[in-house]
């Protein structure tokens, strides 16, 4: 009896340390944040002293134009970076998927931006965008073009460009991997069937890469919602609120405005958004698995 019981408990005993760490490192802070978001909470108070206000923080935020603007900035930032990164990344992969000499060096060079620390990227781009001594404006001047107000009037565009520079390589290497694992003989068949280079891309390569591309895009989307350091270093959210993405607004609400409850509520909004995207991705992979299983079952039935 005792023995059987011990046997049944063994797996849980082995899992216990991991569960404890999960609870401490993940669930506790998460619960703390959710709990805090229902309170009017100043950093000088412990959470117990803060007054419980129910959904007030969420409702205030919903009607707060600044929060809405910040959400809008985040959404358009995420939309533009992911769109451009997908187009450029996939395009480069299609272009560089061939065996000519020096290609491996070139590929390595392409992924360098991804390896640089975000703060360094921010500093670098802030310098390059500098209105008078920055690389871009000096270059424009030297070829006789008017200088651009990079981090002023065009701040959002500028941070989007910097993000594209940093994260296109991510999409590039994943697409390249997807491309190189395509069935080669199907492409050969397409060549015999008379497909030109473009037709091969449109009818064969892109459709076959699509599962990888969707997952890659979603991963990038989740990441784009959380970007902080590069923008913090480059613009600190300015001018005005033009580049104040949510992550930045959360940190400012907590530190400058000293409204921990509101910051927590804002984090939860972001969390819900990300959770939604993640669930979509999860559902997509599940759907794909089910599809392949179904297909395999169908094929075996016919044998």
């Amino acid at each position: 009896m005792q023995r059987a019981m011990a046997n049944r408990l063994t797996p849980y005993m082995f899992m216990a340390p991991a569960v404890v760490i999960m609870v401490i490192a993940l669930l506790y802070p998460l619960g703390y944040m959710v709990w805090g978001s229902f309170r009017d909470w100043d950093p000088s108070q412990t959470i117990g002293e803060a007054e419980f206000v129910g959904l007030k923080n969420y409702i205030t935020l919903w009607h707060d134009p600044n929060f809405r603007e910040s959400l809008g900035v985040t959404l358009s930032f995420a939309f533009f970076v992911v769109t451009f990164e997908m187009i450029i990344g996939v395009g480069l992969a299609l272009l560089l998927d061939r065996n000519i000499r020096g290609m491996s060096v070139l590929r390595t060079l392409f992924i360098l931006p991804m390896m640089i620390a975000p703060v360094v990227v921010g500093l670098m781009w802030r310098y390059m965008y500098h209105p008078t001594v920055g690389t871009f404006n000096r270059f424009f001047e030297s070829i006789g073009l008017p200088s651009v107000d990079w981090l002023g009037a065009n701040a959002l565009m500028s941070v989007i460009i910097a993000d594209i520079w940093q994260w296109t390589p991510f999409i590039f290497i994943l697409s390249l991997a997807a491309l190189q694992s395509l069935p080669r003989s199907a492409l050969e068949a397409a060549r015999i069937d008379g497909a030109t280079g473009w037709q091969q891309i449109i009818h064969i390569k892109l459709p076959l890469m699509m599962p990888v591309l969707i997952v890659t895009g979603l991963l990038r989307l989740i990441d784009a919602f959380k970007v902080l350091e590069v923008i913090l270093v480059m613009t600190e959210g300015g001018p005005g609120l033009s580049t104040e993405i949510l992550a930045l607004r959360i940190s400012r609400t907590a530190t400058e405005f000293r409204e921990l409850g509101v910051a927590a509520a804002m984090s939860n909004y972001l969390l819900i958004l990300l959770l939604f995207i993640t669930l979509m991705m999860f559902a997509f992979t599940r759907w794909q698995e089910m599809r392949t299983n179904r297909l395999r079952a169908a094929a075996e039935e016919d044998e």
Binding site: S185, A186, A189, I192, H203
Partner: peptide, 12 residues
Amino acid sequence: AMVFQDYALYPH
């Protein structure tokens, strides 16, 4: 036109 040893059909 060619028939391949490993079929080479378009999977999608």
